[in-house]
Amino acid sequence: MSSKTLLLSLLLITVSHLLSGAGATSFSCSGDNRCHSLIGYIPQKPTTIAALQSLFQINPRRSLLTANSLPISTPPSFSLPSHSPIRIPIPCLCSNATGLSNRRPIYTIRPRDNLDAIARRIFNGFVTIREIADANNISDPDRIDVGRRLWIPLPCSCDEVEGKPVVHYGHVAAEGSDLERIAEEFGTTERVLMRVNGIQDPTSLHAGQILDIPLPACSSSIKTDAIDSRLLLPNGSYTLTANNCILCSCSSSTWQLDCHATQGMSKSTCPVTKCGNLLIGNTSNTSCGVSSCSYAGYIINNNANNFTILTNLTTPTTCNNGSSPVSQPSGSSKRIGFQKCIWMEVLVMFFWFLFPMRMIG
């Protein structure tokens, strides 16, 4: 091999390695937090729900469906088009001021695989050759064994942005896109994107660059001591919570979490959730305004195989003299409380009859 040919080969290898890591970036993630993030995966050819679930080890499958506003009944064989972003939920772990997917996904090396193809072609450039090698203690990235299982450390974050909880979304910048249009598309600002991503010059954005986009999340009435207190939903998504008994969605029209009882669930499995006579998610007109019943989270009862769904009754201040909304338990624990009331009534009636009998005697 001539010296010119050798130099050209080395140059091509170097350029390939540089390009494979051109778009990847680390997302800042302070503390030792855990959360769920999203990435906008763009399949290079048509794929299916089952294929994406397998590639990213998404469990349960419904988390993939709900992140993309697909019905729960969507079959695993449902076809997804190429070159259209699919929101992939990933478990995120913050460590050393950086967020990485928490030991998932795991990719098994196949014949003719190499780290460059795995990083760029299979995982969209969300990760680089060096990041895969470092995460898996690979000393020589050009020598990998077929059948070896690799952790793919995808970027993520759990940090609040400007004091507000958000859902961090990894976005691949398209050819010809700019920060202003990207910010408008995802409901944030160019200034926020520049700060979060450490961008000094907005014109420096290039195709394939990975951006950390903080998606605004709907606010809610969920209590801080509830099991799902950290439930965050961005616009255009929904989720099932409270043992699948409650369906919550997020809409940019109100930016308030909208929760209702899940339709089709058995009453023996899910308790009726009300604020008095008002069903969760409903409102009613009163003489002094509109009252509403909102979801406030769920808790597991101590020493019992049941759970309690909390609700929040909000009434106009003219009706409750400015008092704050009242959290009301509903469900199995409420039924137990009703049984106690029945026994109290029985005892009262017993003594009421017993006392007159003594007076007559």
Rank of each mutant, 00 (worst) to 15 (best):
A242W: 10
R87T: 00
S330R: 07
T308C: 03
S2P: 15
D113N: 08
D134S: 08
S292G: 12
G176D: 05
T317N: 05
S26Q: 11
S251K: 06
S219W: 12
D32T: 01
D142Q: 11
I336H: 05
C92S: 06
T283C: 03
L8S: 14
P325K: 10
L64P: 00
V172C: 12
I42L: 12
H206A: 11
G281K: 12
M344G: 00
A50Q: 07
T128V: 07
N243L: 07
R87A: 00
K164R: 11
A135E: 04
L10G: 12
R121Q: 14
R103D: 13
I49W: 04
S2C: 15
N59W: 04
A261E: 03
A183W: 14
A117P: 01
G331Y: 02
S287R: 14
R87N: 00
R148C: 05
T128A: 10
C29I: 08
G99K: 04
K164I: 15
I129S: 04
H17I: 15
Q339D: 02
F56T: 01
S249W: 01
G99W: 09
I42N: 08
S79N: 08
A133E: 01
A50D: 06
V346Q: 03
C293N: 07
S252F: 03
L55A: 01
T314W: 02
Y238H: 10
S77W: 12
L10W: 12
T311M: 03
I39C: 08
P202G: 13
F126I: 11
L93K: 06
S63I: 12
A226T: 08
L240K: 00
G187I: 09
S292L: 12
N244K: 00
Y41T: 06
L8I: 11
N137S: 14
I309P: 00
R195H: 11
S253A: 10
G125P: 14
F350C: 10
S9Y: 14
S73A: 14
R149G: 05
S2E: 15
F355K: 13
I299V: 05
I106P: 05
P75K: 15
A119E: 08
D113A: 08
S54V: 06
R34L: 13
S323H: 07
C270D: 01
R191K: 07
G125I: 12
G264Q: 02
C218M: 02
S77I: 11
P85W: 07
N285F: 11
R148W: 05
C245E: 00
G31Y: 01
V15M: 15
R112H: 09
I58T: 13
L7P: 06
S252D: 09
N137V: 04
A133F: 07
S82E: 14
G297A: 01
T66M: 09
Q339T: 04
C275K: 13
N136S: 04
A24E: 13
D134Y: 00
K45I: 15
D113W: 05
S77E: 15
R149C: 02
I42V: 15
P91S: 08
T318K: 09
I132R: 01
G21A: 13
N96K: 04
Q44C: 06
S323M: 06
C248V: 00
Y169I: 05
S252T: 10
D228P: 06
I106M: 07
I280Y: 00
P141R: 15
T317D: 12
S204T: 14
L8K: 15
D159A: 14
P165H: 10
T47E: 11
I90S: 01
S251V: 13
P316Q: 09
G23R: 11
A51T: 10
R34P: 03
A261W: 01
N321T: 10
